[in-house]
Amino acid sequence: MSFGGVPDTGGRITAALERVEHEWFVPRDTMPELRIEPRNLHAALAALRDEAQFETVTFITCIDHHPEEPRYEVIWQLNSVTHADRVRITARVSSENASVPTCIDLWPGAAFSERECYDMFGVRFDGHEGLKRLLMPDGYGHHPLRKDFPHQGIQPDRLYREWDRERRREWETEEAR
């Protein structure tokens, strides 16, 4: 326990990630930040949860570095209740294969964050069974927080019209029956 003292976050994380390839990243603020390859991500997150006591994931989000490649930077921010500190994990993925492993087996509550991230950026979370859109209607073919999404947006009215027409067709066949 390190309440009252300066938490040795770095040492704890280094000890937990002994067997996982990782890279300390120049932090943007005072929070320790790690860059991890997507293939090592799941092992790293599991080690951080079990060995370094990061029991909760505060949020999962993404940054679009368009037109740079690899384009997306997925970010997990973990919080330790025991040690009262945080760590930020980032992973860069390219636009051709924008996918990272899911962590809902570690933190079931991450499911909504992953769905939102998928909805807004189109980054897939492999192993997430119910990975569908959260805020936009199903079938909306765009990802609104991507940098190449038009500033004024694209209205999903065509989608609504299709739904409406489909529904009317169902009624008509019902009436004909």
């Binding site: 038009p150 004024q152 694209i154 019209r161």
Partner: peptide
Amino acid sequence: PNAGHELTHLDRHPHDP
């Protein structure tokens, strides 16, 4: 509202890429 309304280029948002 949209019965028999076929999609034209006007239905597209002007900022649609």
